[in-house]
Amino acid sequence: MNLFLDALAWLTDPAHWTGPGGVPTRVLQHLAITFAAVTAAAILALPAGVLIGHTRKGAGLVGAIAGAARAIPTLGLLTLLGLALGIGLKAPLIALIVLAVPSVLAGAYAGVQNVDTAITGAARAIGMNPRQIVFQVEIPLAAPVLIGGLRAATLQVVATATLAAYTADFGLGRYLFSGLKSRDYAEMLAGALLVAALALLLELLFAAGQRLAAKRIAAPAHEKGAAESDSPREKEPV
């Protein structure tokens, strides 16, 4: 536990909370690059995913992209782009966007694709045009899964943004690498705890958002009394 006390001491040292290398700056940098990467990925992948889910064409493509993305070592992508584009923010930002796209795409696709065809059929039957079906029916119903995709992407990006500090002086990962280099375990551990806390916080926020979205859809359908009165008196196979 001594190691954790050292890390705590490092964290409570006021000197580490100010200036360009201070915790607040690093947290903001970390959040900023995460937000930028996820937003860019969403702009690129959300429309594509919704379109593929709506038309149900190109599903194989989504599966292939998601599978390949899982197999690519993120560190490999970062270092290769780092070598190609040089030290700086451009390489990690591109790498993060590339890593975020498959999750967003898969979430949007799966969400829209899973919407009950009876519901979209009914929407068409009452006279909605395709555009209205997508925006007023499919996207709201797909929201939980779609947010799930954004959640997975955000987690992936927060984690990888830590690695990004390997090729750029940016974000909370810096503490880990400078600690590794100078064998300062307290700094390393403090940085690790900060990143873990940030990731968990985002995870919980997204989980709450997803639950909220799911609740809005599911609430009317889950009336308890109705479900219970249906249960058979006797447990006979029907």
Binding site: F4, L176, L202
Partner: peptide, 18 residues
């Protein structure tokens, strides 16, 4: 389990020895 999975890899590697 899903919270554990949310912890990024490199920080986890550093927390584990502690």
């Amino acid at each position: 389990a899903s919270l554990l999975y949310a912890i990024p890899a490199l920080p986890l590697l550093i927390i584990i020895p502690a």
